[in-house]
């Protein structure tokens, strides 16, 4: 059989393209050798950020462990679109139990492996923002404080997309969801609500916390690699735009992820034992409008109903992140 190398090059940012990297460093998004823990044929929407994030996260885990890892999945989009019985898109040992218990199930898997003397098999768990920051929060906090040997991935698309785009504790201010509609005096999700899960994870003092995004896949892979060098509870919070829920073009998913990072709304950083150790510097800072205007969930901020105050308030969140996580290079 003749094979041809298919290469996808990341475009639209200022990082060196794959084609300029050493063979060892270059990221291969699609080759016939790639493990593909999440295979084609699943039922995610076009342009799904979560599918991309999960594939890269789990692929890296499998690559690093030599396919010796178990994956626990919370209920949610990822679970539903990958495993409609009798089909499964997972090429890995995969276990789903409930919406709110993935961290505890993963603890049980890790405990069983320890009891069986098979701790060389690693355990990862994954869920969306609803299961992570809301319904499974207690279980996740318990897993963190016990420092159980589990790497947990949160794929954050900022609302309950699987049930039809309702607000979660990770929904950003002003965003329209089915339960924070554009109606009344204060349209969209209120300011002053929601939780910052990476900071909460850090407050547990666990060995490793990182944020990552699907526009920076090599950064994401590097963070997974870092996490896998460590034993104990680890947390990686991955920003995954959702065309369906955000009202954006499927083709803009990666672009939106990049704009979220470049505006400062989604800071990319790492922390060890509760202290920030590094953050990714913004190469080309953009105002939040550039990010917001591509999403119909923020449509009420623009056009006839233009809300300059609202946009300014969101810009303030970005500015705070930039200061807090030192996202801009110091002036030379």
């Amino acid at each position: 059989m003749t094979t041809s190398t298919v290469e996808f090059h990341q475009t639209g940012d200022l990082t060196a393209g794959n084609r300029l990297q050493d063979e060892q460093q270059a990221s291969r998004q699609s080759t016939q050798q790639r493990f593909n823990s999440l295979t084609a044929g699943h039922r995610a929407c076009q342009g799904c950020g979560e599918a991309l994030g999960a594939r890269f996260a789990i692929d890296k885990v499998m690559e690093l462990t030599g396919d010796r890892a178990f994956v626990v999945n919370a209920t949610g989009c990822l679970e539903v679109f990958t495993t409609p019985f009798p089909e499964s898109s997972w090429n890995v040992p995969w276990l789903h139990s409930l919406f709110g218990n993935a961290p505890a199930v993963a603890t049980g898997v890790a405990a069983a492996l320890r009891a069986q003397g098979k701790s060389d098999i690693r355990v990862v768990a994954q869920g969306g923002d609803g299961s992570t920051v809301d319904i499974g929060f207690g279980a996740l906090s318990g897993m963190f404080e016990r420092n159980d040997d589990v790497l947990y991935f949160c794929y954050d698309n900022e609302a309950y997309m699987n049930t039809g785009v309702q607000r979660s504790g990770a929904t950003p201010p002003m965003a329209r969801t089915a339960t924070t509609p554009i109606a009344g005096a204060n349209p969209g999700n209120p300011f002053g609500q929601g939780k910052n899960m990476p900071l909460i994870a850090m407050a547990h003092g666990i060995p490793y916390v990182a944020t990552a995004t699907i526009s920076h896949l090599r950064d994401l892979e590097a963070k997974v690699a870092k996490a896998m060098e460590i034993r104990g509870a680890r947390y990686i919070h991955i920003h995954v735009p959702c065309p369906l829920g955000w009202g954006s073009e499927p083709a803009d998913t990666v672009k939106l992820a990049r704009l979220a990072a470049e505006s400062g709304l989604f800071p990319l950083f790492e922390a060890e034992h509760g202290e920030v150790t590094d953050s990714s510097k913004i190469r080309r800072q953009v105002p939040v409008e550039e990010y917001l205007k591509l999403q119909r969930r923020y449509a009420h901020l623009f056009g006839k109903s233009a809300d300059a105050e609202g946009i300014a308030a969101i810009q303030k969140i970005a500015d705070t992140n930039i200061r807090r996580f030192k996202l801009l290079r110091e002036e030379e």
């Binding site: 626990v72 505890a104 603890t107 405990a111 009891a115 318990g142």
Partner: peptide, 25 residues
């Protein structure tokens, strides 16, 4: 080698058992 796990709720307690049992323990 039995692992005794202290958890934050009964929901987690049985969930840990689910994970352990599904792993063959």
């Amino acid at each position: 080698n039995c692992q005794y796990v202290n958890v934050e709720s009964e929901f987690a307690a049985l969930s840990v058992c689910i994970g352990a049992s599904a792993s063959g323990s």
